[in-house]
Amino acid sequence: MIKAVVFDKDGVLLDSEAEYDRRRKVFFAEQGIDDSAFPDFYGSNNDEIWRTVEPVDEARRAELFENFIQRFKNEPMVYADYIYPEAEPALRAIRKAGYMTALASSSPHAYIDKFLAAAAFDALFDYVVSGEECARHKPFPDVYLNAFSALGVEPGEVIVVEDSPKGIAAAKAAGAYVIARKVPSFPDIDQTLADERITTLEGVLPRVLAL
């Protein structure tokens, strides 16, 4: 019996990954950093990204990250511009049907809080957790196991809504049923590990409301 639906943030509730990618590319170009050999950072956490940029020199890595933050200090993410219009109605319908909801994201908690404030989604989640609060990031299952424990549910009692290959792998490793939301700005992203795919968050509703 499903008792909870747990959501990732970027790509699932808002189409923000393209903007993150744009900002990194702007910064790399301004710093003279050749990013041509960098992997796809979709769904990655800050530690993984900046270790790729500077794998050896920790002080230089920290300096680059701080410079990146300062570069866009006066251009904050306007999260409201990227939120999927169906996100709030879908969340409200799921909760009205009696399911618990949680947010489990790789983003730093400060970014999650800014998103929740911008979207006015604070009351729509029973629990919120950042990957930075866990020992290991996605694709390890830690952030999802944390959420399941906080909600008091078993993995088999949870549906996870994800988008990135790392996030899907993390949710599957945690033992959950995984629904992948297709991302308009990254239509070719590999979601083959998911149990099913949907075009919008409204696609979650038939599954949970039929249970």
Rank of each mutant, 00 (worst) to 15 (best):
P184A: 07
E162F: 04
A104D: 08
F148D: 08
L91K: 01
A135D: 13
K73F: 14
K182I: 02
F68D: 07
E157K: 03
E88L: 09
Y127R: 09
R95E: 04
A90D: 05
K166Y: 06
A118V: 13
A118F: 08
F148T: 05
P184H: 01
I94Q: 06
S164P: 00
A110E: 14
P108C: 04
V183R: 03
L116R: 08
F125V: 05
L145Q: 13
A150E: 07
L103P: 04
A110R: 12
P184S: 02
V160P: 02
M100A: 15
L145K: 09
E162L: 04
L124S: 03
G175F: 06
A110W: 08
D142N: 10
M77C: 00
R181K: 11
V160H: 01
L116G: 06
V161K: 00
E86V: 06
M77Q: 03
D81Q: 09
G167V: 07
E162T: 04
H137S: 15
Y82C: 02
P85A: 08
G156R: 09
A97D: 11
K73R: 15
P155W: 05
G131M: 06
A80R: 10
A97T: 12
D163S: 03
Y111E: 10
S105F: 12
R136S: 14
G131Q: 06
P108N: 10
A102M: 02
F121Y: 08
Y177D: 06
G98T: 09
F72R: 10
E66H: 13
Y82I: 01
S107F: 08
P85S: 08
A171N: 04
V129D: 07
Y99C: 11
A104H: 11
G131D: 04
K182P: 01
M77A: 02
Y127I: 03
A123F: 00
F72A: 07
S185W: 00
G131F: 08
I189Q: 11
I94W: 09
Q191Y: 12
N74D: 14
M77W: 10
A87P: 08
V129C: 13
F68A: 08
M100N: 10
N67W: 15
E162R: 01
K96S: 13
A135F: 06
A173C: 07
S185Q: 02
T101M: 10
N67R: 15
F121Q: 01
I83G: 00
L124T: 10
G175V: 11
F148E: 12
L103A: 03
F121R: 00
Y127A: 11
Y127G: 04
F140K: 13
D142L: 12
K114Y: 11
K166H: 07
C134A: 14
A170Y: 01
V128E: 03
D190N: 15
D126K: 00
A119V: 05
A97E: 11
F68R: 12
M77Y: 10
A171T: 10
A80M: 02
E162M: 04
Y144W: 13
Q70A: 15
S106L: 05
Y79D: 00
A170D: 05
P155C: 07
N67A: 15
A123P: 02
V153H: 05
K182H: 11
P85L: 06
V161W: 05
Y84A: 00
V158T: 13
P89R: 07
R71P: 01
P89I: 06
V78M: 09
F148M: 14
A169T: 14
E88D: 02
F115L: 04
F186L: 13
